[in-house]
């Protein structure tokens, strides 16, 4: 079993493109071809149904291998993860999240108490539902729907256990007794890998904690750095109020976020009005703002600034020639 643990610990997929030049024999190739020649006469090209049903409990999904977290940092995982959904979709400050158990094909590291599905016909191979590894994650991480699976033993659901015994993780505690060192290590590795899933929620919580206002927040990130721009409220005299009111629909106070970092070649002002956010980039150079669907947003230009208005909540990428990678701006 050490072989499997070594493989899991090693993030094998990182070696994806590492191969070495090798001189193989024609006979070996012919033998391997023969082995498969009549095994699968018709290769099913239909693959699986590419449908995306409404996210529900007891569904199995694959998870995206890369996502931009709530604070704008890219999160990647070398090996793909499949999950079994253990809760209905819930909301946290308007963001959909679910609770899931990762699924592992390494059934040889299961214990007697583990939930195993031996039927390969469901997702292509027998799998182990990691009932000891429940994680919250944002629903947006779900990638492909693979199937529906009903647990054989519903009592293992932690939520149900809580209701029945009133003690957190009672079932889980019972099941960790009597693990072999290999099983214990396997669980630790899998729990560690699952941080990729729960990070999506943790970064949302971090955003909510650090956001500048109760109803709105802005975070920008570049080169793995995160910055929460300062929030300012300034009261203006009557003349200015009229001018601002006319231009921005803000009447009494001028409220804005200001990203003024010496590492950035420009300042960014962000305001919010009834139509959404307004991003003002203080530079005469050309900048582009792109949303999550890769659509470029319209820009109003003058000699000093580029202004993007009527922007919804979400994550945006700001492209500027002087920056190696785009700046990410999360608005909520």
């Amino acid at each position: 079993m050490k072989t499997i643990l070594q493989f899991l610990k090693d993030n094998a997929a990182k070696e994806a493109d590492i191969t070495e030049p090798i001189k193989v024999s024609d006979k070996g190739l012919e033998n391997l071809r023969d082995l498969f020649r009549n095994e699968f006469p018709i290769v099913d090209k239909s693959k699986y149904l590419r449908i995306h049903p409404q996210v529900q409990r007891e569904q199995i999904w694959s998870v995206k291998t890369e996502y931009v977290d709530f604070e704008g940092l890219i999160q990647e995982i070398p090996d793909p993860i499949l999950v079994w959904i253990s809760s209905e979709v819930k909301q946290l400050e308007g963001e959909d999240y679910i609770r899931v158990y990762p699924i592992s094909p390494f059934t040889e590291l299961s214990t007697e108490d583990d939930e195993i599905c031996e039927d390969s016909a469901l997702i292509g191979f027998p799998f182990l539902v990691e009932l000891w590894n429940e994680q919250p994650m944002l629903s947006e991480l779900l990638d492909r729907y693979l199937g529906f699976y009903k647990l054989k033993n519903e009592n293992f659901l932690i939520e149900d256990s809580l209701k029945s015994v009133g003690e957190p993780r009672a079932e889980y505690s019972k099941s960790i007794i009597g693990l072999t060192p290999e099983q214990e290590e396997f669980r630790l590795i899998e729990i560690s890998r699952a941080k990729y899933l729960n990070h999506s929620v943790l970064s949302l919580l971090s955003f909510l904690e650090n956001r500048q206002e109760q109803n709105a927040g802005v975070v920008i990130s570049w080169n793995d750095k995160i910055e929460y721009p300062q929030f300012f409220t300034e009261q203006h005299n009557g003349a200015l109020t009229l001018l601002i009111a006319a231009k921005t629909a803000i009447d009494k106070n001028d409220e804005y976020w200001l990203a003024d970092n010496p590492e950035l070649p420009f300042k960014i002002f962000i305001r919010k009005d009834k139509n959404g956010f307004i991003i003002t980039v203080m530079t005469s150079e050309k900048v582009r703002l792109v949303d999550q669907k890769n659509t470029e947003l319209n820009c109003e230009l003058d000699t000093q600034r580029s202004v993007f208005s009527n922007i919804d909540s979400g994550i945006y990428r700001l492209f500027y020639q002087g920056l190696n990678s785009p700046l990410k701006i999360r608005l909520k």
Binding site: T3, I4, F7, A12, A13, A16, V43, D44, S46, K47, Y48, S62, T65, D79, P80, L82, P105, F106, E108, S120, A121, L122, I123, G124, F125, D143, R144, L146, G147
Partner: peptide
């Protein structure tokens, strides 16, 4: 049932059965 396995999981799956 290889056709049931998501394309981006097939490579990992083959490695997994090799390691097993």
């Amino acid at each position: 049932y290889l056709n049931k396995i998501p394309e981006n999981y097939q490579s990992y799956y083959l490695s997994q059965i090799l390691v097993s």
